[in-house]
Simulated assay, not measured.
Amino acid sequence: MSGLTIATVCARGGSKGLPRKNLLPFAGKPLIVHSIEQALACAGLAGVHVSTDDEEIAAVAAAAGARVPYRRPAELATDEAGKLPAIEHLVRHLEAQGLVIATVVDLQPTSPLRTPADIEGALAEFTRTGAELVVSVTEPSHNPYYTLVEAQPDGTLALSKPAAFARRQDAPAVWGLNGAIYVWQRAALGRAAREGFWAVRSRPFPMPRERSVDIDDRFDFELAEWLHQRAQRTQAVETQHD
Score class of each variant (00 low, 15 high):
Ile215Cys: 00
Arg209Asp: 01
Gly44Pro: 07
Gln232Pro: 03
Leu24Trp: 02
Ala187Leu: 13
Ser212Trp: 08
Gly196Glu: 03
Leu107Val: 07
Glu95Gln: 15
Gln38Ala: 12
Arg201Ala: 15
Arg168Met: 10
Thr115Gly: 00
Met207Ala: 02
Asp242His: 11
Asp217Tyr: 02
Arg218Gln: 06
Ala163Thr: 04
Arg209His: 03
Gly98Val: 01
Pro208Val: 02
Leu123His: 03
Asp170Leu: 15
Arg194Ile: 07
Gln97Glu: 15
Val100Phe: 10
Tyr145Gln: 06
Asp170Lys: 13
Ala173Gln: 13
Gly13Met: 10
Tyr145Asp: 05
Val9Glu: 00
Gln38Phe: 06
Ala74Thr: 06
Thr129Tyr: 05
Thr239Arg: 15
Lys16Tyr: 02
Leu123Cys: 08
Val68Ile: 11
Ser51Asn: 07
Ile87Asp: 03
Arg114Asn: 06
Leu99Ala: 04
Glu125Lys: 12
Ala46Cys: 10
Ala86Leu: 09
Ala166Arg: 15
Ser2Arg: 13
Glu225Tyr: 02
Ala192Lys: 04
Cys42Lys: 09
Phe126Ile: 00
Lys16Ile: 05
Ala180Leu: 10
Asn178Glu: 15
Ala117Ile: 07
Arg71His: 13
Pro109Met: 07
Ala41Tyr: 09
Leu90His: 06
Phe221Tyr: 09
Val137Asp: 01
Arg201Ser: 15
Asp53Met: 11
Glu139Gln: 14
Arg230Phe: 01
Glu75Ile: 07
Ala124Tyr: 08
Ile32Met: 01
Glu37Ala: 02
Ala41Arg: 12
Leu107Met: 14
Gln240His: 13
Val135Ser: 12
Val149His: 03
Ala66His: 08
Thr127Val: 12
Val137Cys: 09
Leu227Gln: 10
His228Asn: 07
Ser51Met: 10
Leu40Tyr: 06
Arg203Ser: 14
Val137Thr: 15
Gly179Ile: 14
Arg233Asn: 05
Arg67Met: 10
Leu189Thr: 11
Ala77Ser: 15
Leu24Ser: 01
Tyr70Lys: 09
Val48Gly: 00
Thr156Ile: 01
Val137Ala: 05
Thr78Leu: 12
Asp217Gly: 06
Arg211Cys: 00
Ala64Phe: 05
Ile119Thr: 11
Ala41Gly: 08
His49Lys: 04
Ala131Gln: 14
Val149Asn: 05
Ser141Phe: 09
Leu148His: 04
His89Pro: 08
Arg168Ile: 05
Gly130Lys: 07
Lys83Arg: 13
Ser15Tyr: 04
Pro116Tyr: 14
Val48Ser: 00
Gly196Met: 09
Ala74Met: 06
Glu150Asp: 12
Arg203Trp: 09
Asp216Gln: 05
Ala192Ser: 15
Met1Ala: 11
Ala86Cys: 09
Ala171Val: 10
Leu40Cys: 14
Ala199Lys: 00
Thr129Asp: 12
Val135His: 08
Ala74Lys: 08
Ile32Lys: 01
Arg209Tyr: 02
Arg67Ile: 08
Val174Glu: 06
Gly13Trp: 07
Thr103Ala: 08
Thr115Ile: 04
Thr5Gln: 10
Phe126Gln: 00
Glu55Met: 04
Ser202His: 14
Arg72Met: 13
Gln152Glu: 06
Val104Lys: 09
Ala81Asn: 00
Asp170Gln: 15
Ala43Thr: 08
Phe219Val: 10
Ser111Arg: 14
Ala158Asp: 07
Ser202Ala: 14
Asp216Glu: 05
Phe219Arg: 07
Val213Gly: 00
Met1Cys: 11
Tyr146Gln: 03
